[in-house]
Amino acid sequence: MSAIRAAGAVVARDLRLAFRRPGESLLAVAFFALALALFPLGVGPTPALLVRIGAGVIWVLALFALLLSLERLYQADFEDGTLELMLLAPAPLELLVAAKCLAHWLSSGLLLVLMSPVLALLMGLPGEALWVLPAALALGTPTLTLIGSIGAALLLGSRRGATLAALLVLPLFIPVLIFGVGAVDGYLFGLGGRGQLLMLGALFLFALAIAPFATAAALRLCGE
């Protein structure tokens, strides 16, 4: 019972920190929207082309936006010593890691999900995208946070964090990207995307089962 309370306290603390400094979360969302605006400028504003690449572009940008936000997942705790207290706490570290991932998703992934219908309109995606895209992102972005948490934990205290994080984490993001884009395009082009949505859910459950343990193992390296 006290372990659950500790996890709740971690979620509440991280959310409070995110609210006190909203700039960091909003920066990722701003990147999401700004980078999207570059695509019509780059490939030309032909509506048919934008509809064709829209889901893929939005998903790739969501991957990048989450990648950018990963660094603040454990870095601050590592620097100010909170992490050492978490390592020493009687509550299982795996549970605290899951709590941190939940709080991180609420202050990053969830914002991307809420923002995505606007981006879908900007790319001129048909009406169905307004619910499929947020649904797919809502199923997929928690997986990205969980996988990214492994990479962030492995790189704590290393000499070159951010660039290496991309190399470690992006290959592992690929299945989420494939099924995420497949789900949206499946609905938009009449092929049916239900299977892909279910796959996204399966990937999430799988990541939820594996990632907290791998992350906790990586975090314990900092305490050795």
Binding site: L155, P171, I178
Partner: peptide, 20 residues
């Protein structure tokens, strides 16, 4: 030690990546 964890995570993910 960190690289060992990464290799194991990669090995678990490799079939999923391959399949997708």
């Amino acid at each position: 030690r960190a690289a060992s964890i990464l290799a194991l995570v990669g090995a678990v993910n490799l079939p999923i990546i391959k399949f997708s």
